[in-house]
Amino acid sequence: MKGMTIIVKTVSSWIKVLVFLFGIYIILFGHLTPGGGFSGGVILAGSYVLLLLAFGREYAEENLPLPIASKLDCIAAFLFIALALLGFIYGAGFFFYNFLQQELMADCNAAGKLVSAGAIPLYNIFIGLKVAASLFLVVLVLSAFRSESDPTEGQE
């Protein structure tokens, strides 16, 4: 893919920042408003897909190389499980226990504040990274199906 016209390129180079920021907002406010890790991650991936459509595949791949994306994918998923296991250690043997909420941050759990809900925002961030990386990988791999990449991406 060569990319589109100059108009599309200019507009999407402005918009990509906004889309990226909106994705971050959705992830960070996931515990307060509709949204969360998955939806925010999709929007983050969307900003890269915008680049891919407007500037062509090579440009998008320069911005987020494939190996880095796949490593990010694995690391984020691993951190998610590690966080759940931390809940196991701090929460008297309970997997996924929200240990930050109950013990370490007891003063700031008023509903509606940004810093509240304990470990849930952290889970959201990891999920967001994971979804963004893997969705970007899926689109990239599918857009380049002639190259030697395996079709097993996108399982989660």
């Binding site: 796949s70 490593k71 694995c74 690391i75 691993f78 759940a84 296991l85 043997g93 997997f95 996924f96």
Partner: peptide, 19 residues
């Protein structure tokens, strides 16, 4: 053995291996 380990252990290793 805590029960979630049956699920968490292979899942964690599964995401660790491609690294």
């Amino acid at each position: 053995i805590p029960l979630p380990l049956f699920i968490a252990l292979p899942l964690a290793v599964a995401f660790l291996l491609p690294l």
